[in-house]
Computed example of a mutant assay.
Amino acid sequence: MTARPTRHPVSRIARRKGGTTSAVRIVPEETPIAFSYGGTTHAVMMATPADIEDFALGFSLSEGIIENASDISEMAVEDHDQGIDFQITLVGDRRDALTARRRHMAGPVGCGLCGIESIDEALKPVASVGSVGLRLTAGDIVQSVRLLSARQPLHNETGAVHAAGFYVPGKGIVAAREDVGRHNALDKLIGALARAGIDGASGAVVVTSRVSIEMVQKTAIIGAPVLIAVSAPTALAIRTAEAAGISLVALVRGDEFDIYTHTDRIQAGANAHVA
Rank of each mutant, 00 (worst) to 15 (best):
P225M: 09
P169R: 05
R135S: 04
A220S: 05
D79W: 15
A106Y: 13
S62N: 11
A34N: 05
E117C: 05
Y37F: 04
V230W: 10
T89V: 03
V77I: 00
R15N: 11
D79E: 15
A97M: 08
A243Q: 04
A3P: 10
I116C: 04
A250F: 12
P32H: 12
G172H: 06
S73Y: 14
V274Y: 15
S212M: 12
A69C: 01
T2G: 11
R253F: 13
H183E: 14
R239V: 02
H8R: 06
L227I: 04
R253V: 12
S62M: 09
P5A: 00
A250C: 11
M46P: 04
A34W: 13
A241V: 02
P169W: 14
L154D: 05
C114G: 09
T2K: 10
V27G: 06
A194E: 15
V168D: 06
A56S: 00
R102M: 08
A220W: 10
G19I: 10
E29G: 00
H80F: 15
G165F: 04
P49R: 01
F257L: 10
R4W: 15
D199S: 01
V230D: 14
H8N: 08
I173S: 02
E30I: 09
T261M: 07
Q87R: 14
I259Q: 03
E63S: 12
A3M: 13
H8E: 15
T208N: 12
S149C: 12
E178R: 01
V249C: 03
T20I: 15
A164N: 12
S131R: 03
R265E: 08
I246T: 03
Q143K: 04
R210S: 05
H162F: 12
G64K: 07
E117N: 09
A241Y: 07
S22F: 15
A235W: 11
A268M: 01
G39V: 04
L148Y: 09
A23K: 08
Q87M: 14
D96M: 03
D258W: 05
T240W: 10
S36Q: 08
A235E: 14
F35N: 00
D85Q: 09
S212P: 07
A160W: 11
A69T: 02
I119Y: 04
S70E: 15
V249E: 04
R4A: 15
V91N: 08
G39C: 05
L123W: 15
A150H: 14
D187H: 15
T21E: 14
L227M: 07
A3L: 12
D51V: 01
Q217R: 11
R182H: 12
Q82I: 06
A204W: 07
V211M: 07
D79C: 13
L148T: 06
Y167N: 00
T234K: 00
A138T: 06
I222S: 09
L147S: 10
M105W: 13
V44G: 09
D79A: 14
K124G: 05
G130V: 01
L147P: 08
I66E: 00
H155P: 07
C114R: 12
I141A: 02
A237N: 03
N68I: 03
